[in-house]
């Protein structure tokens, strides 16, 4: 296998070189075989995760960027004021904030969130919306099973129906 014949070597030296190289080659090959057969006989090293079976125990890291969500309290309150900063920051236009005029009990007319539309199919998970949100309304969810049969299912409305703005955040 080694094609560097050394012209100055005598016959006996060439003979020895031939066999020492052959032996060297075989030894390196055996070393490799030892590694692979070692792994073959140690089933503990198997690292396969059997996905659908381990769904119950499979827990993503807290910061895993699965999708953008808007957290709601138990009273169905969210913190989005509809300012539209996330929409501005999104590089792909995957967020649309639709606002409506609301009248407060004091009779003032203020802007309120009507629909926070999030196109998951366009999202690149850059995290700019979550980072730039002034009222911490957005967060990343850990759900990652986003396969759907129709692309329209990937367009989501993040605020739940009938949800209202969480007032104390706005006050602060």
């Amino acid at each position: 296998m080694i094609n560097h014949p050394n012209k100055e070597l005598g016959g006996w030296q060439l003979f020895r070189k031939y066999f020492s190289e052959l032996w060297f080659g075989i030894r390196t090959l055996l070393k490799g075989l030892r590694i692979t057969s070692g792994y073959f006989f140690s089933p503990k090293e198997i690292i396969t995760e059997q996905y659908p079976e381990n769904r119950a125990t499979l827990k993503m890291f807290d910061r895993f960027k699965g999708e953008v969500i808007m957290s709601h309290t138990a009273e169905n309150r969210h913190r989005c004021t509809g300012c539209g900063i996330c929409e501005m920051n999104c590089p792909n236009g995957s967020i649309q904030v639709i606002t409506r005029k609301e009248t407060t009990p004091e009779g003032k007319s203020v802007r309120g969130l009507d629909k926070h539309i999030y196109h998951l199919g366009m999202c690149t998970f850059c995290g700019l919306c979550v980072k730039s949100c002034p009222s911490d309304a957005l967060a990343f969810g850990q759900k990652f099973e986003h396969a759907v049969f129709n692309r329209h299912h990937l367009t989501k409305v993040l605020n739940q129906p009938g949800s209202l703005l969480q007032k104390e955040i706005k006050a602060s």
Binding site: Y39, I46, Q50
Partner: peptide, 13 residues
């Protein structure tokens, strides 16, 4: 199966 075990996998299952 052999190649899977060598490669720390389970192979067809």
């Amino acid at each position: 199966k052999v190649c899977a075990f060598i490669q720390n996998r389970l192979g067809p299952n």
